[in-house]
């Protein structure tokens, strides 16, 4: 698959573009543009690392919103992308936001939830290019889908040469304070990694409440995912992730399971990506978001060495 550089011309609503390059020993944003409801905030440079906060307008997306972002990390540069607060996905609603002008066929034909027969999809599409010697760290807060929300996220990563990346994709069960526990209608998240044009990993997670038939007892999503209320996945790829992976692998190998009576507060798994032994996938589940967040913050702390303590401290706050 061939990477096409993002068009510098007109951006659609919800569209955006980030490009980071290296000038001498310092990173610069050679491009940083976004349109409502997407916002790119507080760009900051520290040595070779650029930081930007990605957030949707007002911190949330409603039914019909579309975000379409292109990100380009050029040779030698490092880019850290964070978000401010969780990405909240509100209930789908009739019609579309006024600002969302380009309708795509995706929203039609979706299995409609039992609560809302005119469900319109909220979707976020991001394409990343990670040049040789560069590093992308995508460490946003988790996605929180509210009751009846329908969310679709697609992220594509094109790694070139010895480029590296750490991608965090996570979801919480909803607004616990309102008793929401996995009661959104649909969550579909795709993360696909290519290395020099060859697909090396493709993760597709689909969470939805669906009934199977009249004589089959209900089994809501909550039952399938219990007792945990937060699920995270991290994809590591490229040589700059090696120190973290070595560390994680030795911790993982020390775990021994005898016979547990009840599930632990947090569990995690580590699987290598087999292509050229260049990466790994880590999955984590925890009783509460905070438990997962603390685990991630601790486990990824080697990233401090790459981006510096000050920048790393802004992640997982």
């Amino acid at each position: 698959m061939q990477w096409q550089s993002p068009p510098l011309t007109k951006l659609y609503s919800g569209g955006g573009s980030i490009s980071v390059s290296l000038h001498g020993e310092k990173a610069v944003f050679s491009e940083l543009a976004s349109t409502y409801p997407l916002k790119l905030l507080a760009p900051y440079i520290h040595d070779k690392t650029a930081l930007v906060y990605l957030l949707s307008y007002g911190g949330g997306l409603v039914g019909g919103d579309e975000v379409d972002l292109n990100v380009n990390v050029q040779r030698g540069a490092r880019l850290l992308i964070l978000s401010q607060g969780t990405t909240k996905v509100f209930k789908t609603r009739i019609g579309r936001r006024q600002a969302s002008v380009h309708a795509k066929g995706l929203a039609s034909g979706l299995p409609s939830s039992q609560h809302d027969t005119t469900a319109s999809l909220t979707q976020q599409t991001i394409a990343f290019r990670i040049a040789p010697d560069s590093l992308l760290l995508l460490l946003p807060e988790p996605v929180t889908c509210f009751r009846d929300a329908s969310y679709h996220q697609r992220q594509t990563f094109h790694v070139e040469g010895n480029g590296s990346l750490v991608i965090l994709d996570w979801i919480t069960s909803g607004r616990i304070s309102r008793g929401e526990e996995w009661v959104f209608s649909r969550y579909h998240s795709t993360n696909e990694v290519f290395h020099d044009g060859k697909r090396v990993a493709k993760d597709i997670m689909l969470l939805e409440n669906q009934e199977l038939g009249p004589h089959i007892p209900e089994r809501p999503l909550r039952e399938r995912l219990k007792p945990y209320s937060c699920y995270a996945m991290v994809i590591f790829y490229g040589p700059q992730t090696r120190p973290i992976l070595t560390d994680l692998a030795s911790r993982y190998d020390q775990i021994t399971i005898f016979k547990e009576k009840t599930p632990a507060q947090l569990i995690w798994s580590l699987s290598p990506i087999e292509a050229e032994d260049q990466g790994a996938v880590v999955r984590v589940a925890g009783l509460e978001t905070e438990i997962v967040k603390n685990w991630l913050k601790d486990s990824l702390s080697h990233l401090e060495e790459a981006v510096g303590r000050d920048l790393y401290r802004r992640a997982f706050v």
Partner: peptide, 10 residues
Amino acid sequence: ANTWPLGEIL
């Protein structure tokens, strides 16, 4: 698609 992240971890 994968529909059971808990099953994947276990």
